[in-house]
Amino acid sequence: MAAVRSAGVLALVAALLLSGCASPEQGGPELDSAAVIAALAGIDGVTAADASAYSTGTPTSYGVRTEISVDDAGLAAIGDVMGSAVDVLAAQAAGFRTYVIEVSAPDPENPGTEMIVTLADYQDQMPFTQGSYLGWTLTLTADELQQAAGS
């Protein structure tokens, strides 16, 4: 029984170490979250934004996760919003390995609530072709982000 408990504890510790708990301050690039959030919030159609750095789980590999809330006009102009968001990240969050962007918008079926937007459904409206649409998010590598910026 003790061996099973020890194995469980070791598995838990290993999972925590590999799950991205480390912060960029432990050797990764710096992210001025407040500046990125302010710039994202200044995009027409954006009602709120958040940006944070995370460890990808590989030593010295960090990414930026960005969450953007848009109003109805922002959803209608999702290509413009995403193009501007990519420009902000390229200018103010360089040096990370990956960039994950998630967008939420008013839910037309439940007024007063938001829904997560499946960005792949709007791929034809994006001003760039770079990135991978995974679930409801768009993920860009550092190279893809730079290529997409200014599109």
Rank of each mutant, 00 (worst) to 15 (best):
L10W: 02
L10I: 04
A11P: 01
L12T: 06
L12S: 06
V13W: 03
V13M: 08
V13G: 06
A15K: 05
A15L: 06
A15H: 04
A15R: 02
L16F: 00
L16N: 06
L17K: 05
L17T: 02
L18P: 03
S19Y: 01
S19L: 08
G20R: 05
G20C: 03
C21A: 13
C21F: 11
A22Y: 00
S23D: 14
S23Y: 02
E25A: 15
P29R: 06
P29S: 07
E30I: 09
E30A: 14
L31G: 12
L31D: 13
S33K: 14
V36W: 02
V36L: 10
I37M: 09
A38M: 10
A38V: 01
A39G: 09
L40Q: 15
L40K: 15
A41E: 11
G42R: 12
D44P: 15
G45H: 09
V46D: 08
V46H: 04
T47E: 10
T47G: 08
A48T: 06
A48G: 14
A49G: 13
D50P: 07
D50W: 03
D50K: 11
A51N: 03
S52T: 05
Y54H: 07
T56E: 08
G57S: 00
T60G: 09
S61L: 09
Y62E: 15
Y62P: 10
G63R: 05
V64T: 03
V64R: 06
I68R: 07
I68H: 10
S69C: 08
V70E: 11
V70G: 14
V70C: 12
